[in-house]
Amino acid sequence: MSTDRLWRRDEEVPAAVLEAIEQAVVLHGRQQTQGSDARDIAVALYENGELIAGGWGRTEFQRLYVSYLWVREDQRGQGLGGDCLRQLEAQALRRGCVDALIETLLDEVSDLLEHLGYVCMAHVHDYVPGFTRHIMLKVWTPRG
């Protein structure tokens, strides 16, 4: 029995295929667990109609997963990142989340997150040359 198998690599693999692989992995993982309630969560701050800060992620299994948190460069240093994070946290708490998870490669962001109540659960030195990956967790209600 012969098959016509064909490997495609790098640029030969269309973006739609990459997305299909990602969705299949996520679906498989969720099928292994019980009670997935994944929902997107987002916040965006505008000034004079222009986006100046925002963040998004998801809530699932009573946890806030923050994927992205961003402040426009000329608006940094004013506390807007912390404000965005607090907005996401407030929404997550209303959804019944008991903790929040966020990762960063920047030491100064890790320090800010600690100031906001997050604890470094793990870090990987030189995750990207010259940068440490910080995995941060904030617990509102301990899990049983």
Score class of each variant (00 low, 15 high):
R143H: 10
I21N: 12
M136I: 11
M136V: 09
T59M: 12
G81W: 04
V139L: 07
Y118D: 08
Y46M: 11
W140A: 13
Q23D: 11
V124E: 07
A90N: 05
D74I: 00
E50H: 12
V13D: 06
I52G: 10
N48S: 08
Q62W: 09
Q62R: 14
I41N: 03
E60V: 00
H115N: 12
L113C: 08
L27E: 08
G49C: 10
R5F: 07
E19A: 15
A90I: 01
T132W: 04
I41M: 12
T104D: 01
L116C: 08
M136K: 08
E103H: 09
D99R: 13
G130C: 05
D99Y: 00
Q32T: 04
L113M: 11
I52M: 11
R5G: 05
V98K: 05
V66K: 02
D107I: 02
V128R: 00
L105W: 01
V66G: 04
D83W: 06
E73M: 00
W7I: 15
G117K: 03
L6I: 13
Y68Q: 11
V17Q: 05
R8P: 01
W56E: 05
I52A: 13
H28E: 11
R58K: 12
G96C: 06
G144N: 12
M136S: 05
I41A: 12
L45C: 07
V26H: 05
T141A: 14
P14Y: 03
V25Q: 15
G79A: 09
L105N: 02
L80C: 05
V71M: 06
D111L: 15
I52C: 14
R86G: 07
R94L: 15
F61D: 03
S67C: 04
R76G: 05
P14W: 03
G55A: 09
T141Q: 15
G54H: 06
T104M: 00
R39P: 02
A122L: 08
I135P: 00
L106K: 14
D40S: 14
D126F: 06
L93I: 14
G144A: 15
S36E: 01
G54I: 13
D107N: 08
L113F: 07
S36P: 02
W56S: 02
V139C: 05
L27I: 01
C97H: 05
D107M: 08
P14N: 06
F61A: 11
G82N: 09
Y65W: 10
Y65E: 09
I52R: 10
V139I: 14
G35Q: 04
E12C: 10
L93W: 11
D74G: 00
V71A: 06
